[in-house]
């Protein structure tokens, strides 16, 4: 694979844990790859699995969904629902031939700046290993 390839990764972070965790990583001056396009959502339970499809179609090479640890959800149970949804979505994407290394989910709490770095590094590494995902890009519409 081309060494210079820098993947586009869309990350859906929950406002209460992972977004704060990423913020902590920043304020602690932890260095981590800059390939992430972070989208803040109020809860992982708010992330429609179709967002993942849309992200891939609009140019993402990898998608990360990150939220509070089970039991720590600000809304009590949002991440439990998300866990079921994305487990199934991941199986389905894998079945139609999307490399499983393109889609990740993680639990990162507000105090885990160091874990956030590790997660991002792994996600970026995986996306680099599988390369660009051009075959699922939405065709440009010429009006």
């Amino acid at each position: 694979m081309n060494d210079k390839f820098e993947p586009n990764i869309v990350a859906f972070l929950c406002n209460w844990c992972s977004y704060a965790g990423a913020d902590l990583a920043g304020t602690s001056r932890i260095q981590y790859p800059a390939n992430l396009n972070i989208i803040r959502v109020m809860c992982t339970g708010r992330v429609n699995p179709l967002f993942v499809l849309n992200a891939f179609q609009q140019g993402a090479d990898g998608v990360l969904v990150s939220g509070c640890h089970p039991g720590d959800c600000h809304y009590m149970e949002g991440n439990y629902y998300a866990r079921r949804r994305f487990t199934l979505m991941r199986e389905l994407l894998e079945y139609v031939g999307v490399d499983p290394r393109r889609f990740h989910m993680s639990w990162v709490s507000a105090s885990e700046g160091a874990k956030w770095k590790e997660v991002v590094e792994e996600v970026v590494e995986n996306a680099k290993a599988v390369g660009p995902f051009d075959q699922f890009r939405r065709n440009k519409i010429n009006w």
Binding site: P70, R84, T87, R90, W107, V119, E122
Partner: peptide, 9 residues
Amino acid sequence: PDDEEDFIL
């Protein structure tokens, strides 16, 4: 609460 979560980082 104990749903499978092998793939979650």
